[in-house]
Design a protein around this nucleic acid. Structure first.
Length: 439
RNA sequence: GCGAUUGUGGUGAAGUGGUUAACACACCGGCUUGUGGUGCCGGCAUUCGUGGGUUCGAUUCCCAUCAGUCGCCCCA
């Protein structure tokens, strides 16, 4: 038997409905913030990710899915969304668009070769946003508030927003030197991973989980202490605007994040749920003022974030989030070979009128068909057999009330529509929140 | 890349070195040849992830492999 590849999963209809509902909320909030959807390819030239995300990052150094195509080109399945969106921004010259600040979002699969575990897959879904063309701290604050609004709209409450600033190039450079000279000689006391980080990416040592409580790290210099005047001012303003919008946050001086392209603001949203296991970062993001230029575009600042959709779904499932319920308006019960033709005709007429309808394809008897209709959650069952055919009528059973009436078969569609218009009896306690059935 | 743990029908799961692999739910059929959801009766794994080994004999023991789950690293 064929099996799905490691780290992938099938979304069956029941689960898909939940994702559709999740996407619906995401699109609504995006609309309110005036972010518009962009769809870029799921694979790009390998080089794009190496330059964009950074050669030394774990993502490109050991997690990419890369293949050579028949034209001998090296392609890589996208491990994250930003690089592709930036490429598209540059290639389509969006920097020259009539609207100077381009605000974009995307939803789609990403690929990373990792050992799967809770909330982590090799093919996973991300929802992300990118805003280009302004270095205003207002935009950093807007992006954070956008991320928080998504969570609010989803009614996910137990979260913390961590923010920090790693500053502009000059700040980063100064800080890096200070950290390296501070750690020089002290590295031996840290874990083996930190030894490597010391050479490749010293900033990452800061958020090492193993050594986080050691005195060496506690007393280590922090990025904020090395911010230039303007970088400091930028960060202060971001904080000021977050305060103005009443967004709860924690300044986390050790927050660095793993991707090379970040400058100034970096942030993360953590959910506090046991159901998420060890992967409780549901959103990560930050500012990247040099990325567009380093990928060959004009000097253009940007800010963005990405959510892990599977992780969002874990959070949602713990608060009993449901998708659109599954149901039928009509189940067409045909009894007998001679009745099938008329049955198909009636069924089709109802479908053309927009009724969600279905029929049996397995020549089942009446009893199994009743059971099937119940499993399909049909509101009405239209019974058409020998007797009905003789008299030119059809029996219509309302599954909600249990009542059954005999009507002329031509009246089937109109009768169902009339009944569906009546206020539903099982929608009595919808007073506090509007539901689709009541509207 | 490293570590832990699991792998029996559609699902949840018992079980034992030895002829027929519990039980429950689901599903199917009948009792009731035109009215489901209750009740009763019956059906539903020639087979215990896959391959190899030990053995007279393995689903049960060993090895390998594949897959799931969780953790480390890192990340969403």
């Amino acid at each position: 038997m064929y099996q799905k590849m490691k780290g992938t999963y099938d979304l069956l209809p029941e689960q898909t409905r939940k994702y559709q509902q999740l996407e619906k909320v995401i699109r609504n909030v995006s609309k309110i913030f005036n972010y518009n959807e962009i769809r870029t390819p799921i694979f790009e030239a390998t080089n794009l990710f190496h330059r964009g995300v950074g050669e030394t990052t774990d993502i490109v150094s050991k997690e990419t899915y890369t293949f050579t195509d028949r034209g001998k080109r090296s392609n890589t399945l996208r491990p994250e969304g930003t690089a592709g969106v930036v490429r598209s921004y540059i290639e389509n010259k969006l920097y020259a668009a009539k609207i100077p600040v381009q605000k974009l979002y995307y939803v789609g699969p990403m690929f990373r070769y990792e050992r799967p575990q809770k909330g982590r897959y090799r093919q996973f879904l991300q929802f992300g946003a990118e805003a280009f063309g302004s270095s205003s701290p207002m935009l950093d604050a807007e992006v954070i508030s956008y991320a928080v609004s998504i969570l609010r709209a989803l009614k996910i409450k137990d979260v913390t927003v961590h923010v920090n600033s790693i500053g502009d190039d000059e700040s980063k450079q100064k800080y890096r030197e200070a950290l390296v000279s501070y750690l020089d000689g002290k590295v031996d006391t840290l874990c083996s991973d930190c030894h490597n980080r010391f050479k490749t990416n010293p900033l990452r040592i800061l958020d090492c989980k193993i050594d986080k409580d050691s005195d060496v790290l506690k007393n280590a210099p922090k990025p904020v202490q090395y911010l230039t005047e303007s970088a400091k001012e930028h960060f202060d303003n971001v904080i000021k605007y977050l305060e103005a919008m009443e967004i709860d946050y924690i300044v986390d001086e050790s927050l660095v994040r793993g991707l090379d392209y970040y400058t100034h603001t970096v942030f993360e949203v953590n959910a506090h749920l046991d159901s998420l296991g060890a992967q409780n970062t549901i959103c990560g993001g930050g500012r990247y003022d040099n990325l567009v230029e380093s990928l060959g575009g004009p000097k253009t600042p940007g800010v963005g974030f990405a959510f892990g959709m599977e992780r969002l779904m874990f959070a949602l499932e713990s608060i009993n989030f449901l998708g659109e319920p599954e149901y039928l308006h009509l189940y067409m019960m045909v009894l007998g070979e001679e009745q099938k033709e008329e049955g198909m005709k009636l069924l089709n007429r109802c479908r053309l009128g927009g009724l969600i309808s279905d029929i049996d394809f397995l020549d089942k008897g009446m009893k199994p068909q009743f059971k099937l209709a119940a499993n399909l959650k049909a509101r009405f069952i239209a019974i058409y057999g020998e007797e009905e055919q003789k008299q030119g009528v059809i029996n219509l059973k309302d599954q909600e009330s249990g009542e059954q009436i005999t009507i002329k078969k031509e009246k089937l569609y109109n009768k169902i529509i009339t009944e569906l218009m009546n206020p539903s009896s099982n929608c009595t306690d919808c007073a506090e929140e509007s539901c689709d059935s009541c509207e």
